[in-house]
Design a protein around this nucleic acid. Structure first.
Lengths: 195, 195, 195, 195
DNA sequence: CATGAATGAGAGTTCATTCAT
DNA sequence: GATGAATGAACTCTCATTCAT
């Protein structure tokens, strides 16, 4: 029966994720979740003790997915420049996603729960992103495709820029063109040209 | 009477700002605000029709402050490079401020009220910032202190990077050193060296 | 306005007392109280933070009343025997009261909140009762109306017997006749005859 | 099958009794009971239709135990005074028992379910106790060990006093010394001396 | 017989907003 | 203008009981 319970749990997470994407974190009530899931109030509490617990479970799932995306970016058989472009475009896709975008909810959750250190899911994702960028640039420099004096700093700068794009897409909106320009600018700095 | 009322309004905004800095936007209750102001519940509603209205008034005040900072940066009799550094360090100060920092509240407000177009206070601030950066870089390039192919894009990139630093300081925390490195990196790209 | 608030508080206590008398302690809901008071849910919370707080306020009021009864018994210009009889009959009245009897609620409250020491309201009442009985018997013995070897013990025994009658009236019911017989028996032991 | 079912029923009653002793009557949840029993929620309902039914079954068991104690007291080959002392000390033991004491739960159950007449388990126990006391005192008087004018009343008085001690032990606590003093006082009234 | 996931009514509590004074 | 008591909708969470498996 653990099997069935696990399936249900996953089903709730999926539906709940949709609600969080639409409404953010704080505005979401248990009522909305149970209605989205088509289950009873009590039923939800069998799986998650409160909204925070539920959201953290959604977040954990998200983390797993995000890790997969990062790994995928590295797996591609391509030149470092192509791979960097691939990776930044994957980020672009996330940023521009209107539906199915958990960003706002995550930010709100972070505001409510100031989490220091390693448990901070946003920090984990940020650092993972910096690590990917660093390895891509390092390889690019090694293969003489890219020019970069301080690889670690360049990676961090790109990560902050994309963090800025992400939050901006939540607050003031960003167009695909704007993201493309940022990507081109970043590539340019590394000595690459985007056609 | 309008005089007195205006003073009272300003007083409330000041105290309310303090509360919003401490608690963010959504978590703030009317009780907390009236207690911080030492006025009655009803008294608050004489000046502001609801919490949102109150926060927007705080925000408008904030905008004025930001403008003043921008103007100040321009007023300084300094080289474009020095002025850019001055401006970025002013931004740094805002980002690192622990107390008296409205950023989180503003983000939360924006999440609750997706405002498109010119009325969006965050967009206004962002665009003002880009404009300042643009004019500074343009001058720097004109006076041959700086090197930059696409001034508009460079300005926007810096603005996004700082937006990323600001949101990161609200979610994962950023140290003064990290901001300094970003500033140095940005200056370096423009062909300037920060000692 | 403290005046009005105090009146309201007293009004709520009165109505709440009625509900506690009828339903006991644990079975009472905030809904029942607000309905009995004819006020809004939120209105009740302006005066009492929860059911426990409310009941304790009722209890405090009760304590004041009980003290008054005890004092009255002593004020009467009567022989010690008459005064003892008067006091026991006052207790009898409390025990037999069907309506307006808080006993069950008090017992339930005590079960929920095991309070040790001086703050225990039941203990305070019990000890006050023993003290009254002791002084009455002591006077009776001094004036040679009563015979008693261990006055303190006799007083305590009477108090426990009446405690037994009180709880019995809450669980199995006791008739006026039974209480009268107990009173007669107690008086008899002290060498007095009740006609 | 009836055999097995009966065993299971007895097992549940035993475990449930433990929970009721610890938590009282109203505070006990089905979850606690099924956990204490190590059975499923549904399983419990195969044997008892609801919490009340379960508690009543525990109570019935209890009644049987009490009867046994009473019988034992009578079986002892001892003088009426010794037997009375034995019986009162058995009661004392029940009163002072900290663990494994169902008293509070029984009181709470009685408050929730005002049961008049013969079905009232507390009344049955009370009356059984009075009967035992009466027969012991009657024998004591007959054998000229005791002095008592109104045997029935003396028995009832003792029963009420012990009822008072029992409820007091649930609300304000009673020490062994206090109970001993009460026993000595009662014995003294009957003309017996407790060493 | 036995399970335990699911139900849903209902309890406590909060809080933006109103309005008689 | 100013007050603050009052409102009531809405939210979180619990738990006795049921019923498909």
């Amino acid at each position: 029966m653990g099997e069935k319970s696990l399936q249900k749990r996953k089903y709730i997470l999926e539906k709940a994720r949709g609600v969080f994407c639409q409404k953010g974190y704080r505005a979401v009530t248990m009522k909305e979740i149970v209605e989205a899931c088509g289950i009873s109030r009590g039923g939800l509490y069998l799986h998650f003790i409160n909204t925070k617990d539920l959201f953290e479970a959604v977040l954990a799932q998200e983390h797993i997915n995000a890790e997969a995306v990062l790994r995928n970016a590295k797996v591609q058989n391509a030149s470092p420049g192509e791979m960097l472009l691939l990776y930044l475009n994957a980020q672009k896709k996330v940023i521009l996603k209107k539906k199915d975008n958990l960003s706002t909810a995550i930010y709100e959750y972070m505001f409510d729960n100031k989490i220091r250190g390693k448990n901070n899911p946003v920090r984990r994702q940020f650092e993972a992103s910096v690590a990917v960028l660093e390895s891509l640039i390092a390889e690019g420099v090694a293969q003489e495709w890219m020019v970069c004096e301080d690889i670690a700093e360049a990676a961090r700068n790109i990560a902050y820029t994309f963090e800025g794009l992400k939050i901006s897409s939540c607050t003031i909106g960003v167009s695909a063109e704007v993201v493309d320009k940022e990507i081109a600018y970043i590539m340019g700095i590394l000595g690459m040209v985007v056609k």
